[in-house]
Design a binder for these strands. Structure first.
Length: 662
DNA sequence: GTTAGGG
DNA sequence: CCCTAAC
């Protein structure tokens, strides 16, 4: 079987998708955008120019339907050649050049296999946030990470009423702000994050890491490949479990294993339906600069003075959920994010066996769901995948580089990421179908006339990692998590004592979990698939041999501020409102961070700004008539408390101001 | 990073 | 929820 490796040479980074709204960093600051504009636009143009010339000069047309699905096809003639010269890097055994025992990470695939969790200095880590950095000189591989929280649950405000003490130390704050170098770990408790963001956290995966050219050793100990994240943490575990967004579960009970596989929100309603609307720069002339597309991507000088000056991009101010949302929707908002499917391939067995790139399409995969599959001959689904788009590639290249070197570099990167570590994700009407057992009929693919609502994307495969080899029962993780959900979703308060005890129980919404109802239902076995954001490509590139060219993964997270999506709306539930009211009654209206810590600690999707905003709306709601209110009705009792607390604290503040004035 | 307030 | 200013 010949691999179908046709590429619509649509570097995602070259495209300028329309965005719902301009945006900035999640916290409303400007830095990202400004910095980008300052530093990248120029580099952009350089690359765009070079790439544009490259394409112009190419004698070979860009992919067409004609050859699609038939033969391996490379756009550039030197593709194959390059491949031969270099060998199939992506297929190369990662162990070949290094010691697997030492967790030498050479290839994308291996890297991905290792990124679920690992043990460092005897402490297990989940890799929610981490970065890698290569020190070429020493050929050492450093990683940094931030553990979201190892804070034990008992440390939560839930068990302490004292909020006056400025809480929870530095770590606590860092937890909300994303990656950091803080490696401090209080104890063996390690949270396991089942989110799919991990790959994204491989910030700036260094080219060397996947280029098979250098031994890149981590300080991992143990075999992370076989590391079972589900079974390795047996102490008290604080679980931050998320649904589509940031819903977290904090579990007070000691658990040997808890993991919630998230169901990221796939693109909900706002998703792009017109998958065929490619934003490839070739079709976006209006955005071109100087005849070429202006690239919104980031271009950094990787090699300087002939040596690798790669620096990983530390996104200290990246807010995971925001980015995640962005990525979750990318496949829809910007088709270039992963797929480009508008036509059909006709396969007798409804299967495109292109080295697994399309294997998930076939209904034959649906036979394991206990359903009686339809006869293939009865209703064949004809699909044609015009082209796949590779995940984002971020290329850094000196302006003095030749076009030829650019070609080779890009080709290497492309072949590398295609060679391994990718699997296909399927989107139906903007929603990712995670359930491999669903039939095409069930998912609606079969009725999809023009495939316009069907999309394919390439994603790094990592699912096998998150899976416990020892746990054959796919329902286990999910079942557990549901249990967890139920458990933690219940309001943590002691009825009867509230408002009476001098130390009333604190309602904490750390364990608030909700599933994305819009998401296509999926089975546990597939829910662990990577989310669209994980389609971030880890690109392999021959380091120095390529005229000092380098390709590094385009870091969506740290760039393209315009792509940042608005967070999904998540109305406050009544229990949440109650928790908020209670906290504000206690703390007042000017200490939102404390309120957050006290009542919503762990509910990462609720920021203190959210709480402040909610309070604002609560006050407003309480003041208007019941008929004017919308949404889930808030008990009048709560609204009364809102008004009372608001009045009380407003009065206090006024008094203090008077005092201060005098 | 937080807070406050307009949008 | 977003976005900013101000601190």
């Amino acid at each position: 079987m010949v691999l179908q490796r046709r590429l619509d040479y649509g570097f995602n980074g070259y495209q300028v998708p329309e965005v719902p709204r301009a945006s900035r960093s999640a916290r409303g600051r400007v830095p990202i955008k400004k910095k980008l504009e300052a530093n990248q636009i120029r580099a952009f143009e350089i690359l765009a120019s070079v790439a544009g010339k490259l394409l112009q000069e190419s004698e070979h047309p860009l992919p067409t339907n004609d050859s699609c699905g038939k033969d391996a096809h490379f756009i550039f003639d030197d593709t194959t050649k390059s491949k031969q010269e270099k060998g199939n890097l992506s297929k190369e055994d990662p162990c070949e050049r290094g010691s697997c025992d030492e967790q030498t990470l050479l290839c994308v695939g291996r890297m991905q296999e290792c990124q679920q969790s690992y043990t460092l200095n005897g402490v297990s880590h989940s890799q929610e946030n981490f970065s890698y950095e290569i020190n070429r000189a020493s050929k050492s591989f450093d990683h940094s990470e931030s553990i979201y929280s190892n804070k034990i649950f008992s440390d939560s405000p839930l068990f302490g009423d004292s909020v006056e003490e400025k809480p929870r130390g530095v770590l606590k704050r860092k937890l909300e702000t994303g990656p950091s170098k803080d490696m401090s770990i209080k104890d063996e408790r390690t949270q396991i994050l089942g989110n799919s963001e991990d790959i994204m956290k491989v910030e700036g995966m260094p080219p060397e890491l996947v280029s098979c050219g250098h031994d890149v050793k981590t300080s991992f100990s143990g075999d992370c490949k076989n590391h079972d994240p589900l079974l390795c943490h047996c102490a008290n575990i604080k679980v931050d479990s998320r649904d589509d967004d940031e819903n977290c579960v904090r579990y007070a009970q000691p658990l040997s294993v808890v993991k919630e596989f998230e169901h990221p929100p796939d693109a909900g309603d706002e998703k792009i339906n017109n998958l065929a609307a490619s934003r490839h720069w070739r079709v976006a002339p209006e955005r071109r600069i100087g005849g070429y597309s202006r690239n919104d991507g980031k271009i950094r000088q990787v090699y300087r003075h002939g040596r690798n000056c790669y620096t990983h991009q530390r996104s200290q101010k990246i807010y995971p959920f925001k980015k995640r949302k962005f990525f979750n929707r990318m496949p829809l908002a910007t088709p270039d994010r992963g797929f480009n499917c508008e036509s059909i391939f006709n396969s007798p067995d409804k299967r495109v066996n292109s080295d697994n790139y399309c294997a998930e399409i076939g209904p034959s995969s649906s036979t394991t769901g206990g359903q009686v599959p339809l006869k293939s001959s009865d209703c064949n689904v004809k699909l044609s995948i015009k082209s796949f788009k590779v995940p984002d590639l971020f290329i850094e290249i000196p302006a003095t580089a030749t076009v030829g070197s650019l070609k080779r570099t890009v080709m290497e990167a492309v072949t590398s990421i295609l060679g391994d570590g990718l699997h296909v994700g399927i989107l139906v009407r903007g929603k990712k179908v995670r359930d491999d057992n669903k039939t095409l009929l069930q998912t609606g693919i079969s009725q999809d006339e023009k495939s316009r609502n069907l999309g394919f994307m390439l994603e790094p495969k990592r699912a096998k990692l998150t899976y416990s080899p020892r746990s054959k029962d796919p329902s286990l993780p999910s079942g557990r998590s549901r249990e967890l959900t139920r458990h933690s979703a219940s309001l943590v308060s002691q009825p009867g004592t509230s408002n009476v005890s001098p130390n009333p129980p604190v309602i904490n919404f750390g364990g608030y979990v909700k599933r994305d109802l819009n998401a296509v239902p999926s089975l546990p076995s597939t829910s662990i698939e990577k989310t669209p954001q994980a389609s971030q490509a880890l690109v392999a590139v021959p380091p120095i041999s390529m005229n000092a060219l380098a390709v590094v993964p385009f870091h969506r997270k740290s760039g393209h501020p315009e792509y940042v999506q608005r967070r999904i709306r998540r109305p406050f539930s009544v229990p949440e409102v109650e928790a908020l009211v209670q906290a504000v009654e206690k703390l007042g209206t000017g200490r939102w961070r404390d309120v957050k810590l006290r009542a919503f600690d762990g509910a990462k999707h609720r920021t203190y700004v959210d709480l402040k905003d909610k309070w604002k709306t609560l006050v407003h709601t309480a003041r208007i008539s019941a008929q004017q209110r919308r949404g889930e009705p808030v008990p009048q009792e709560l609204l009364d408390r809102v008004l009372a607390a608001h009045a009380c604290w407003s009065q206090r503040r006024a008094k203090q101001q008077v005092k201060a004035a005098v």
